[in-house]
Simulated scan of single mutants.
Amino acid sequence: MSNNNNFDKDFLSIDYYYDDQNGAGIELFYNDKRISNNSRKTVSPSNEIEFSIYTRHLTDSTKLIQQQFKPYIEKMLKENKDTLHVGTVSDFKKNHKEFFEKLTKNDSISIQFLDGKKLGERITVPVEW
C-alpha cells in the first residue's frame, strides 16, 4: 500500500471479501509479526507499507471435495490437528487449479480510511494471485 498524499493516511482494518461476503476473519502481518486488524495503522506521506494477509476459506464437504483433500485430511488426522493446512497459495493453485479459481473467484480486499476520527473513503480492489 502506498500513500501519494502530503499527509498521513490512517485506517483501522483490512477486510477480505469472499466473492461478495465478508470473510471469516483474517490474520494480518507486518514485518513478519502478527498485528491487530482492529487498531489504527498509518501510512506516512510518500511512503509504502506492505502487509501479509492470511485468509480462511471455507468449502462444502461433497465427495468430490473430500477426494481432492484426502491426502491433506489423512495428514491432519494423523497429526491430531483440527485445521487443514494445504501449503502455500502457489502450491495449492498448481495442484488444484480449477478448485482454487472457484474458491477465490471475485475475492477482494477493502480498506476504509479514516477522515479524522470518522470513517472516510473506502477503497476495494480485486485480489490478484
Rank of each mutant, 00 (worst) to 15 (best):
S36E: 03
Y72P: 12
N80S: 09
E121Y: 03
I73W: 06
K70T: 10
N22L: 13
K105S: 15
N95H: 07
E79C: 09
E79D: 13
D19N: 07
F100Y: 12
E50W: 03
S46H: 04
N31E: 14
F29D: 10
K105T: 07
N3M: 10
S61V: 13
L28R: 00
H85W: 04
E101Y: 00
S36T: 00
E74R: 07
N80Q: 09
A24H: 04
V127N: 11
N3E: 11
Q66H: 03
W129D: 15
D10N: 10
P126N: 06
Y72G: 15
R56K: 12
F7L: 10
Y18V: 08
I109Q: 10
N6K: 09
N4I: 05
A24N: 11
H96A: 10
F100I: 06
K93R: 14
E98H: 03
L114P: 01
S110Y: 01
Y18Q: 15
K118D: 04
G116L: 02
D115R: 01
L28S: 07
A24S: 14
G23R: 04
H85I: 03
K63E: 13
Y16F: 10
F99V: 01
Y54V: 12
Q112A: 09
E128H: 00
Q68F: 00
T62H: 09
S2M: 08
V125M: 13
P45L: 12
Y54K: 08
W129A: 06
L64Y: 03
F99M: 12
E27S: 14
Y17T: 06
